[in-house]
Design a binder for these strands. Sequence first.
DNA 1: CGCGATTTGTGCACGAGTTCACAAGCGCCT
DNA 2: AGGCGCTTGTGAACTCGTGCACAAATCGCG
Lengths: 251, 251
Amino acid sequence: MSQHRPGGPNGRSGGVPALPDLPEATVARLPEYLRALHAIAEVGSDTISSEALATAAGVNSAKLRKDLSHLGSYGTRGVGYDVALLIDQIEFTLGLTQRRAVALVGVGNLGHALAGYAGFASRGFRIAALFDADPERVGEPINGLNVLHISELATVAAAESIAIGVIATPAAAAQDVADALVTAGVTSILNFAPCVLSVPEGVDVRKVDLAIELQILSFHEHRKSALTALPGGYGSPNGLAATGTEEAVGT
Amino acid sequence: MSQHRPGGPNGRSGGVPALPDLPEATVARLPEYLRALHAIAEVGSDTISSEALATAAGVNSAKLRKDLSHLGSYGTRGVGYDVALLIDQIEFTLGLTQRRAVALVGVGNLGHALAGYAGFASRGFRIAALFDADPERVGEPINGLNVLHISELATVAAAESIAIGVIATPAAAAQDVADALVTAGVTSILNFAPCVLSVPEGVDVRKVDLAIELQILSFHEHRKSALTALPGGYGSPNGLAATGTEEAVGT
DNA sequence: CGCGATTTGTGCACGAGTTCACAAGCGCCT
DNA sequence: AGGCGCTTGTGAACTCGTGCACAAATCGCG
């Protein structure tokens, strides 16, 4: 998706830690592997096979091995992967060796929940500041943090060196907030508002739309009932649901 | 991802409404198009070009046209798409002509917010029941609905004909809840718990992991700072950030 | 010390998804 | 009526991701 080999097929020469140019699909799965590894480490295993880790992460083992091979060779043939080493390696790759500060904008229904979500803290993030445009909400303490007015965003972001912002405002306000975040130096945005954001090049945006997820499920429901509800109906002649392999939709 | 052509390249014969066997990637984008269309309809336009709709939905126009072409030919060359017609068509495809009942399990931090999320209601869903395992919480009214104990899941799900379940419990409880949902007849699950669910064939699962989204952003942050912070550093020899094309991560 | 059991890392083929580029179709204007 | 400009729908090339299957590597044991 961005930075590129200048000339050759892989333009490194000195190559020390050597940013390995991971496929985006792999990057999206690394956090899942990391979570599975932490769970395994807690149980106490020192090493784990690709097969076992793959099951724990909900993928097949070939994919997992290929993903991990992009990070380098951290497994031992005949044995498996060293759990602790692999955790370190993935955390380094994801940039989780430092605890990253996050700004959360919009302390409404959803924002309130996000501010209290323990999963952020336990997985490498620190919610460093809460913002809202509503003066009524400014000053309100949430989870040990006072809500600030959005006008303070730039100053606070600089002081706390915040590079990641989360938008949990209504859709109508989201673009303005995004602009403010970018101005404040934020270069990664997680957007929960149901709308498309336009940001300058160099800023990454990921979108999570809760209703969309349900709508996708709805599609599959619709499809299922069309297939089963009509006994000798149209569609596929045989009543067998005929999957054979895995079910479950990918993320 | 599942049901399949028995023999021929496209095993229809009678083909009445003719389930068109959409690519999964297309399905995932349809809700976004739908949202954009509703916004456009509100402004008052009767028709819209693929170019304009694509911009509103954050994709390029070729992709949008190909996606829509899978539903059938609902555009007029030289003019564009009829907004109202297209809305109907996408809503039908997604199975949103009926308002779908959803069960929400886990009324903690996040579940509470989801129960009050207006976006569900406005986009075709009705939260029909709230469940929790904690007796303390049972009876608590949230948004006009009383929290029920999870043991009542089966009865209520049947009575309300609930086919979609949302899991917003801690990870430790999620698998048990999923099993209970499946037993209660639920065939689509939206999982907010950070863990892999195993479900029988025929049940769809989609996962939303808030921390994972941040971790993916963290990766890109890490990459960015490695490229810019080190002037003539290690890694790639030339300091040029060299993007050139689009930025912004896909969902 | 060598052999077999085990598991990683990867070359290759395949399939899904994306993008380009253009022919076909439609409305409008003259 | 005819031509022109605009926009859709789609064939074809291409990129990206996946999965199989196997060679290479390591450990343990006789």
